[in-house]
């Protein structure tokens, strides 16, 4: 019997007692799993991720990552936070941002040659090697997003969690990112939070639906009814995968 990489049992969490964000969550994430975490805004997606990282502690229930408390294992997780919360005029270069991934390696936080090498390789993986010295502030939204992805890659580890990484990417970069994630999934678990269901979700093996409660579905089950159930009530689905119904739906 395989051991789950992330095992969540009967977990509940609330920021304040009268507003439960997550209730009775049970979830297993397996080695080499890939899943996208979907659900409406405020449904608890980011909260679930922060629990996995040990940034929040559950009110009840348990969460174990590789059999340990998340705080113990957080350095094994590469994390891409939501991009919007960065100070756009902070004087820092793209390479310095990526190097942060290597901080934990020694007491003073000095980077070794190997750390810098890894950071440059990660930047190359997101096609930004030639912009390494460029100030973070001078990059476009999509480029900054890729720098943050590179940072998560440079940290190594066996789990990669991305929180809405496609929000400021154009379609081509999104496609590139998903190809990269598929490749990375050969060696590590990939979890991606997104609030749009559709195009990107088809790249993943499973869909984790988060809206106070958590349900898991194989991607093949993704249908209009399911989405309606997840988001609750009336919802119009717009598909962007260019493989949609014959009624004709074109963007280009």
């Amino acid at each position: 019997m395989k051991q789950a990489a992330i095992a969540i049992r009967d977990l509940s969490f609330a920021y304040s007692s009268d507003m439960p964000v997550l209730t009775n969550v049970c979830l297993d994430v397996w080695p080499l799993d890939s899943a996208c975490i979907v659900g409406p805004n405020g449904g608890g997606k980011t909260t679930l991720v922060k629990l996995m990282l040990g940034l929040l502690t559950p009110n009840s229930g348990s969460i174990r990552v590789y059999g340990q408390a998340p705080v113990e294992t957080r350095t094994r997780i590469g994390y891409v936070p939501q991009y919007a919360r960065y100070d756009a005029c902070f004087p820092i270069s793209a390479l310095e941002v990526v190097c942060m991934a290597r901080l934990g390696s020694n007491f003073s936080g000095k980077y070794s040659k190997k750390d810098k090498q890894l950071a440059l390789e990660a930047l190359a993986a997101v096609q930004l090697a030639d912009l390494a010295k460029r100030p973070f502030a001078a990059l476009s939204g999509g480029q900054r997003q890729r720098v943050l992805i590179a940072r998560a890659l440079a940290s190594g580890g066996d789990i990669l969690i991305l929180d809405e990484p496609t929000a400021s990417l154009d379609r081509a970069s999104e496609q590139q990112l998903l190809t990269l994630l598929t490749e990375l999934n050969q060696q590590m678990i990939v979890l991606m939070v997104t609030h749009e269901v559709g195009f990107s979700s088809t790249f993943f093996k499973r869909i984790i639906c988060v809206n106070n409660k958590v349900y898991v579905h194989p991607t093949s089950e993704l249908t209009g009814e399911l989405i309606q159930e997840m988001y609750g009530g009336d919802l119009r689905m717009i598909r962007h995968d260019h493989r949609c119904a014959p009624e004709g739906h074109e963007h280009d």
Partner: peptide, 12 residues
Amino acid sequence: CFDEEYSQLRGV
């Protein structure tokens, strides 16, 4: 200064 939460995740 740049990203307190992330530094914490890297063991700072």
